[in-house]
C-alpha cells in the first residue's frame, strides 16, 4: 500500500493523522518526507504542523531506520537498574550508537520512556515486544532471534 491509500483510510477519523502515521510507520519503518507532505495536504494542515506531530512522538521517525527497532527505557527505574550497561552492550554488539541504524538496515537503536514493565528493570523492547531483566550478557542471544529475519 502506498501512503496515499493509507492516509485516505484515516482521513475522516478524529486525530486520524496520528493513526495514519502509525500505519505508515508500520509499513515503511519510518515516515518518509513525501508521506508527511501528503498527510499535511490530506488533513489540510500546514507542513510545519504535520512535521511537528511527526517529530513529537518518540515512536515516529522521520529518518529511514533499521527494520527491527530496539528501544531502551531511559526512565529513572531502568536507569538505576543498569540501563547504561545494557546500552553499551547493544552499541558494541551492533557497532552503532544510540539513535543510529545498522548499515544492513536490520537494526535501529532508540531511547524510550517507561514502557510500564518496571517490575523487571532494566527493560528493552524490540518491535514493541518487551524483554525484562535484561543484562549485557543476554544481549547476543536476544539479538540472534532477529538476525535471520
Amino acid at each position: 500500500m502506498d501512503y496515499k491509500e493509507i492516509l485516505a483510510q484515516y482521513r475522516d477519523l478524529p486525530g486520524g493523522i496520528i493513526e495514519a502515521f502509525h500505519a505508515i510507520q508500520d509499513e515503511f519503518g519510518y515516515l518518509p518526507e513525501e508521506a508527511v507532505l501528503e498527510a499535511a495536504r490530506g488533513f489540510a494542515i500546514p507542513v510545519a504542523e504535520a512535521f511537528g506531530i511527526a517529530t513529537f512522538y518518540s515512536m515516529f521517525s522521520v529518518k529511514p531506520r533499521g527494520k527491527n527497532v530496539i528501544r531502551i527505557c531511559e526512565s529513572a527505574p531502568c536507569h538505576i537498574a543498569g540501563a547504561t550497561e545494557v546500552i553499551a552492550a547493544l552499541e558494541r554488539e551492533l557497532g552503532i550508537k544510540m539513535g543510529e541504524s545498522t548499515s544492513c538496515g536490520r537494526f535501529a537503536l532508540e531511547f524510550t520512556e517507561c514502557v510500564g514493565q518496571c517490575q523487571g528493570t532494566p527493560v528493552i523492547t524490540i518491535n514493541g515486544k518487551p524483554y525484562t531483566n535484561v543484562s549485557p550478557a543476554a544481549i547476543p542471544n536476544i539479538l540472534a532471534e532477529y538476525k535471520q529475519a
Binding site: 510545519a48 504542523e49 512535521f51
Partner: peptide
C-alpha cells in the same frame, strides 16, 4: 504563512521552519 513549527519534545524541542 505557517513557515514555523515545533520539532521534537522535552529538552530536544526546537522551533524550526517547515520540515526542519
Amino acid at each position: 504563512v505557517n513557515a514555523l513549527g515545533l520539532q521534537n519534545r522535552g529538552f530536544e524541542t526546537m522551533v524550526v521552519p517547515s520540515m526542519g
